[in-house]
């Protein structure tokens, strides 16, 4: 199937963005946006739809199998992993738009600077102050929370998140719940309230977006219970309060 890729490009952070349209032919149907970008960049003869040569497209990837979060971008309006976006499945009228994540500064083309996300984790003191094993009944929660790719898709859809604010969003809340599966001290609870709970509008826009399949709802409910509601978990769902 012939797919036209509409790629938002910028040579540098301050340069004017423009759209590059390039054709890509799928053969097996399993080709992803990541595959199309790799193939275009590997082809020294690459041309846009008007037959004009163009320089390689900057984007980030690594594992090509949904496990590293490097390739997150906005595909047909939705934040996704490029290696998980099957072109034939996401195309609208034979076209696929690829844009950089908008919540982070652009480096070039589809590559963005996600360092603010990591800086937030440092602010959140995202490490185990006292070492210890995961409590046996928390193993599943710790596993789920440890899966976070730090891709940033959840931040893209969050109405309350912007870089520079004290609210760090789901990408900080999920890792925090890993630590809470081991210990839950007052300082952690306070950091959680300050950087997650207080700023969160509970709209749950981040609900079904996570490419790692993390059950964000249930992690947030649990962490809120631990950090805000002091473990009165049976007393109803705090999200509804």
């Amino acid at each position: 199937m012939k797919i036209t890729l509409d790629i938002t490009r910028r040579e540098s952070p301050d340069a004017e963005p423009y759209i590059l349209s390039a054709a890509f032919e799928t053969v097996t149907g399993s080709e992803t946006a990541a595959y199309a970008l790799t193939s275009l960049n590997a082809d020294p003869e690459r041309r846009d739809v008007n037959g004009k040569p163009f320089p390689p497209i900057r984007w980030e990837s690594s594992c090509l199998q949904k496990k590293c979060g490097a390739c997150a971008m906005v595909i047909c309006g939705k934040p996704m992993l490029a290696c998980d976006a099957r072109l034939e499945a996401v195309a609208r009228g034979g076209r696929v738009t690829l844009e950089p994540l908008k919540k982070f500064p652009v480096i070039a083309d589809l590559a963005v600077d996600r360092e603010p996300m990591f800086a937030a984790l440092a602010e959140m003191k995202q490490w185990l102050e006292e070492h210890g094993e995961v409590r046996p009944k928390e193993t599943d929660r710790a596993f789920d929370a440890s899966k976070c790719l730090q891709c940033g898709c959840c931040l893209e859809v969050c109405p309350n998140f912007c870089t520079g604010s004290a609210f760090y969003g789901t990408a900080a809340a999920v890792p925090a719940s890993r630590l809470m599966a081991v210990t839950n001290d007052a300082e952690r609870a306070a950091l959680y309230r300050k950087h997650v709970y207080n700023g969160c509008g509970k709209s749950l826009a981040c609900r079904n977006i996570c490419p790692a399949g993390i059950d964000i709802d249930s992690l947030l409910v649990n962490s809120n219970a631990a950090a805000v509601w002091k473990r009165r978990r049976k007393g109803g769902n705090p999200w509804t309060l």
């Binding site: 185990l128 210890g132 094993e133 995961v134 710790a142 630590l179 599966a181």
Partner: peptide, 8 residues
């Protein structure tokens, strides 16, 4: 001890 959720 660093909190890796090994199967038990």
């Amino acid at each position: 001890q660093l909190g890796v959720p090994f199967n038990r």
